[in-house]
């Protein structure tokens, strides 16, 4: 495939997450860690664990699939944005939203194949009209009527920390790192284990890999 100027390989750093499906227990710790770190409003989950029941009784089992923004190398949500509010950082592949530019047209929400973008229509907290002190602080990071999404904890990455969901995961099913670095843990895992990229056929080149 011919890669554009902004393709993943032309960037110095390409952050990615590897999800080991054999380790994930569906505990939703990542979901809660994301909530605690980013203070998203009720009903909005930047990361979450999908469940699917397989088999039939008495040999039924559940498959868990943690999902988040895939910070795609060719993100379909960015070109559809009419204002440029959705953008990809030049120095890496993180797909972010400028809250001050977003007009809330929903184009990017529709375009995202992973349904990982959200637009809150109010700033109500979890406990009625009155926001908690925690919510009052965290809700300053986003605006009502503007798109919000997983930033891969960009504020932590820029401080040299790993995303909150990855740090929290009890069975260490989530691994974070630079996919352009062949010595990184994520690159080695992808090299050693069978894996797939979700909905890769749509051409977004997602940077979340699932180990099977």
């Amino acid at each position: 495939m011919v890669q554009g100027l902004n393709s993943a390989s032309s960037r110095k750093v390409r952050w990615g997450v590897v999800v080991d499906l054999q380790r994930c227990t569906g505990c939703q710790s990542c979901t809660i860690a994301c909530k605690a770190e980013n203070g998203t409003p009720p009903g909005i989950f930047w990361t979450r664990v999908l469940e699917k029941e397989e088999g039939t009784y008495p040999f039924a089992y559940t498959v868990y699939m943690p999902t988040r923004c895939n910070h795609c190398s060719e993100p379909p949500c960015v070109p559809v944005c009419p204002t440029g509010a959705s953008y990809q950082r030049d120095k890496d592949n993180l797909v972010l939203v400028d809250q001050d530019r977003c007009i809330g047209c929903h184009s990017c929400v529709i375009a995202c194949p992973y349904q990982a973008r959200f637009i809150p229509d109010n700033a109500k907290g979890y406990y009625g009209e009155q926001s908690t002190p925690f919510e009052q602080v965290k809700y300053q990071n986003w605006q009502v009527g503007a798109t919000q999404k997983c930033t891969l904890c960009v504020h932590r990455i820029d401080q040299g920390l790993i995303p909150a969901c990855v740090e929290t995961c009890p069975p260490k099913a989530l691994v974070f790192g630079d996919l352009n670095d062949p010595e990184s843990a994520v690159s080695k895992l992808i090299g050693q284990r069978s894996h797939y990229q979700p909905l890769a056929e749509l051409g977004a080149d997602p940077n979340v890999f699932y180990l099977t």
């Binding site: 960015v78 070109p79 559809v80 944005c81 009419p82 204002t83 440029g84 509010a85 530019r101 977003c102 007009i103 809330g104 047209c105 929903h106 184009s107 637009i119 229509d121 605006q143 009502v144 009527g145 503007a146």
Partner: peptide, 20 residues
């Protein structure tokens, strides 16, 4: 629109966005 007062920004990405 979620933020109608910013609608004037809607023509910022003529190169890629059909909405623009």
């Amino acid at each position: 629109l979620g933020n109608p007062l910013r609608a004037w920004r809607g023509v910022s990405r003529l190169g890629t966005s059909w909405l623009s």
